[in-house]
Design a protein around this nucleic acid. Structure first.
Lengths: 209, 209
DNA sequence: CTAATATATGAAGGATGCCTCAGGTTTAGG
DNA sequence: CCTAAACCTGAGGCATCCTTCATATATTAG
């Protein structure tokens, strides 16, 4: 995931002392706050630094430019998300298909719900900057995890594992994201979550052997 | 849809002569081009004007500010999309459920495919600016159209029309968008499109009465 | 043909943003 | 305690960017 970080976006140096680690964390958190309250176009280096309680110069000691900051932010977010998904997939090896689906929806849903506004803000920045490589790496990582999980289902083999996996992942991720961008009322959202599980299971029944 | 346009974003004046209409169209087209080649952060008034072959001043005769231009662009895009969907929904009143689903997926899919890059560029700008009101109006409009279509299905009543409709629309739109942002190979995309239809129909079979 | 209206121009004002750099402060280790 | 390395500061240079306005041209109506 970090292997292919473009050189122009690589961190300038890593914090070696504790206070520096605190500083960098503060910068990240400040960036999220600014993203939330002001939006990506108003996310300026001065604003982030101010919010983080450090000087602009400090920021530039760790990030070569503004884009690198956004990049690192996206990386951080996707890394955490990927880990959650991988964990869920590992935890459900050998479980019935229906439970797998439910767990996957649950994990992704919860990841978005926990800090829905932050998620939305981050997602926008991921999409906006040319962070395609990050997204692709994330997708590949998730793909491996979910494929392994599905392949381990004891209750049914699948006609075409690859295709089914792609479909499930795309549908679940796309739907959840869409649901959150529409700001549904909590009960409608909950209903949708349930229906999504129903739908995935109905689908799996048709491609089961 | 235009009823609630914030005053700061309302067009400054409408073109009354033919040449002005040409100019405004050129500005829109130029904005899309710039969005495509340079991205939203690099979309500047001068760049758009230059690309459109007009002066900056001309732009400001029709749009009070840059944001209004983006807003109008999004509005235009969503308007066209909403019309396509409404047309499909009207054309499939009284059709079997399975055909409705297929038509809906087809319409949305085609709308994205026709000029996939443009769609992506526009979508980003829609999400970025605070065009939530536009998106909401669009969603409401689509909701009415699809609900009316589903209600007219002769082959089956639905347990809970509202819930089923919300689920279908969210899943279809979310999935299609997600599929396009992942830049899938054409054959994988086509396979996914088919599977999405299968999935929706499998779902409908479970909520049919 | 003339006046009124619509449309177009683009230089320049004012604002803001990104990033650097020369110099200060703090910490770690001997 | 002392020195080198790590860390931090923030004013200001340079580059844009957004927007206006005084001026000019084109169109239409009478």
């Amino acid at each position: 995931m970090t292997a292919s970080t473009p050189p122009a976006l690589k961190p300038r140096k890593r914090p070696r002392q504790e206070r520096a680690r605190v500083t960098v964390d503060a910068i990240f958190e400040a960036a999220i706050q600014v993203l939330l309250s002001d939006g990506l176009p108003r996310l300026t280096t001065t604003r982030v630094a101010e919010r983080a309680g450090v000087s602009v110069g400090t920021m530039y000691q760790y990030f070569p430019n503004k884009q690198a900051l956004i990049y690192a932010l996206s990386e951080r977010y996707l890394e955490a998300l990927a880990e959650k998904i991988e964990h869920t997939c590992r935890a459900h090896r050998g479980a019935p298909l229906a439970r797998m689906v439910e767990a996957l929806v649950d994990t992704y849903w919860r990841a978005k719900t926990e800090r829905a506004d932050v998620t939305r803000a981050l997602y926008r920045s991921v999409v906006e900057m040319d962070n395609d490589s990050l997204v692709e790496a994330f997708a590949a990582r998730v793909n491996i995890a979910t494929t392994a999980m599905l392949a381990s289902a004891p209750d049914a083999a699948l006609e075409n594992l690859e295709s089914t996996n792609l479909t499930l992942v795309t549908v679940i991720f796309g739907t959840v994201r869409n649901a959150f961008e529409r700001n549904l009322s909590p009960d409608k959202a909950e209903e949708l979550r349930r229906q999504l599980v129903v739908m995935c299971n109905a689908y799996l029944d048709t491609v089961r052997i």
